[in-house]
Design a protein around this nucleic acid. Structure first.
Lengths: 292, 292
DNA sequence: ATAAAATGGTAAGATAGTCTTATCATCAGG
DNA sequence: CCTGATGATAAGACTATCTTACCATTTTAT
């Protein structure tokens, strides 16, 4: 029905007009002159109307004069599209949505994002944080390209690449009787007032599980939790990364018996590939965090 | 440098997305399924990034999801251009600038324009009129595609196609002594007060040239001229077409000795082709006026 | 559970498109 | 008149694109 215009012959026509001749245009396009002659002739009979006068040298017909500006327009749009796509592929443009649990978001992401921004100045990043369940939701709903989190249950539709282990320990005030200990056995905590938090379920299914029974409080908010600890109301367990190192009066003692760890890794939708920008982020994450 | 995107593979990609599969798309495009597979694979490695997930059936990658709307956009623009150009070639759009001497403009053009408008409802027409010299100028300056006029001197840069002969005759009031005569010999006009007008130079170089000597008036404006004739101030010579047939008191007597004619024809720039719309007009003009 | 049908990918060969080299006809300027 | 431009043409090499035939995998239906 309507003729299919190929990009290249349009480029030839425009080049002939700009350079003022077939020879000059051919030189600029690194083609032979007959290549242009033939391609343009083919285009002309596809359109059913000549673009150049047969007499005179490469002067446009009125019809050609009508067409050339439109050809230019289409070429411009083509080139813009081509450039846009290439810049995506080359990671000079695009954006990444990434999610992380709060501990990772505050302890690991700042350095990662700084490195990423330096390596890919054109890429935009959005960082979402929330607890592990929320993060998992973001990933499985596709609202996020990637996540740094720990995975609770295996999900066929998500793929998880472990990156590091994060040991759980006891957190207490620095004047607590246990403060200063190198390691702790879970039994030494019996009788302590344990404040549970979002990460406490890491103890489930371990020898230390009975501790959860003796706990009267559950606090999900980190600020509230540290305030409680600061006030000496009790102790809690936290993975190392989640421990607020900068807090003046709190200390962290790793649990040695049993050793409890969470596994931090990169979570992404399985059987779906990443955008080039997200791929760049994933590569950076592996490069920085997989050394352990 | 930047990759050349061919239109067709983009169309394939969009069709696969729209039809939800390679087979369905191939069916719609009247191609075999491997044709799409290969073309799209080629496009993907030209871009350096897959558009479709290799697993799963024809699901887009995030990169593909980025590209497809832009592909659609370019295809839309391509198709619009293609349609525009075809409608020009097929004379469903465009415009013609045409010039004519006043006699032609008023006597021939109305019917021509009506026929043209009926045959090509999409084409716009501008009609310019003026004396033969002005019309020639419009054509040679390219301000007009075509002209219906008579040509005084040959010009290498203009091409003139004769269409009809327009006999010169004497115009006088219907109570004039010569009124009612079938033909006239120039000598019968001796002693008459001759009013010259823009067409009087047709007599130059003919036997009747001496008449020009006995003429005291020159009037270029047709309205003024007819008013003078109407007032019985004198007689004039005019080509038949320029004679105001509708005037109640004027009559036209052809000159038979000598026969003097002007040649009306189609004037256009030589060695320049016409726009499709102008070509359509030229064709109509030949069809309607070349019968004589 | 197994057979049937549909998915897309791959290979080989035919066809069509596009390029290059070599050559030609025409025209402008010295 | 000749030289050096112009663009057009012809023949052949090369490349792109399509089709047929086939494969592996997944989905659907029995």
């Amino acid at each position: 029905m309507l003729p299919e215009l190929k990009i290249q012959p349009l480029r030839y026509v425009v080049a002939v007009v700009d350079e003022g001749g077939f020879h000059a245009a051919a030189r600029r396009l690194h083609r032979s002159q007959p290549a242009l002659s033939m391609a343009i002739k083919e285009l002309e009979q596809r359109l059913g109307e000549p673009l150049f006068e047969k007499a005179g040298k490469s002067r446009l017909t009125p019809f050609g004069a009508y067409c050339v500006p439109r050809f230019r327009e289409l070429l411009t749009q083509h080139d813009r599209l081509s450039r846009d796509i290439v810049s995506r592929v080359e990671r000079r443009a695009g954006h990444v949505d990434i999610a992380a649990v709060p501990s990772v978001a505050s302890r690991l992401m700042p350095a990662l994002l700084a490195d990423f921004a330096a390596a890919h100045p054109g890429l935009h990043i959005s960082l979402h944080d929330g607890n592990a369940d929320f993060v998992r939701e973001l990933v499985s709903r596709g609202e996020v390209d990637l996540a740094l989190t720990s995975l609770w249950q295996h999900d066929e539709r998500l793929s998880f690449a472990p990156l590091m282990h994060d040991a759980v320990g006891v957190v207490c005030r620095d004047d607590h009787r246990l403060a200063g200990r190198e390691t702790l056995n879970w039994q030494e905590l019996q009788g302590e007032r344990l404040i549970r938090n979002g990460t406490s379920r890491l103890l489930e299914g371990t020898e230390a599980a009975p501790l959860l029974e003796q706990s009267a409080f559950f606090i999900s908010n980190m600020i509230s939790l540290t305030a409680m600890l600061d006030a000496g109301i009790g102790v809690t367990t936290l993975p190392r990364l989640a421990f607020p190192e900068e807090h003046r009066h709190l200390c962290f003692i790793p649990l040695s018996e049993p050793r409890v760890e969470r596994e931090i890794g990169l979570l992404q939708p399985a059987r779906r590939s990443l955008s080039p920008a997200a791929q760049a982020m994933a590569e950076l994450i592996f490069e920085r965090l997989l050394k352990s």
